[in-house]
Simulated scan of single mutants.
Amino acid sequence: MKEKPKIQLKRLAEFLECQFSIEEENCGVVDEILKMCSFENLRNLEVNANEKLSTGERNKTLFRKGEIGDWKNYFTVEIREKLNRITEQKFHGSGLKFLYN
Rank of each mutant, 00 (worst) to 15 (best):
M1I: 07
E3A: 12
E3L: 10
E3Y: 00
P5N: 05
K6E: 15
Q8T: 07
K10E: 15
K10G: 08
K10A: 15
L12N: 12
A13Q: 05
A13C: 10
F15R: 07
F15W: 04
F15C: 04
F15P: 01
L16P: 13
E17F: 10
E17H: 08
E17L: 07
C18M: 14
C18I: 11
S21H: 14
S21E: 15
S21A: 13
E23K: 10
E23Y: 09
E23W: 11
E24Q: 11
V29T: 14
V30D: 07
D31I: 01
D31A: 08
L34S: 00
L34N: 06
K35M: 08
K35I: 03
K35Y: 03
C37N: 02
S38K: 01
F39R: 03
E40P: 09
N41E: 08
R43E: 14
R43C: 09
N44Y: 03
N44M: 12
E46C: 05
V47C: 02
N48A: 05
N50F: 06
L53I: 06
S54W: 05
S54C: 10
S54F: 11
T55N: 09
G56Q: 12
E57W: 02
R58E: 00
R58G: 10
N59F: 12
K60M: 05
F63E: 04
R64F: 10
R64C: 15
R64L: 15
K65E: 11
K65A: 07
E67C: 06
E67S: 04
G69F: 06
D70T: 07
K72G: 03
Y74E: 13
V77S: 09
E78V: 04
E78Y: 06
I79T: 11
I79M: 10
I79N: 10
L83W: 09
L83M: 12
N84H: 00
I86S: 04
T87I: 03
E88P: 04
K90N: 08
K90D: 12
H92P: 02
G93V: 03
G93E: 01
G95Q: 02
Y100V: 14
N101A: 13
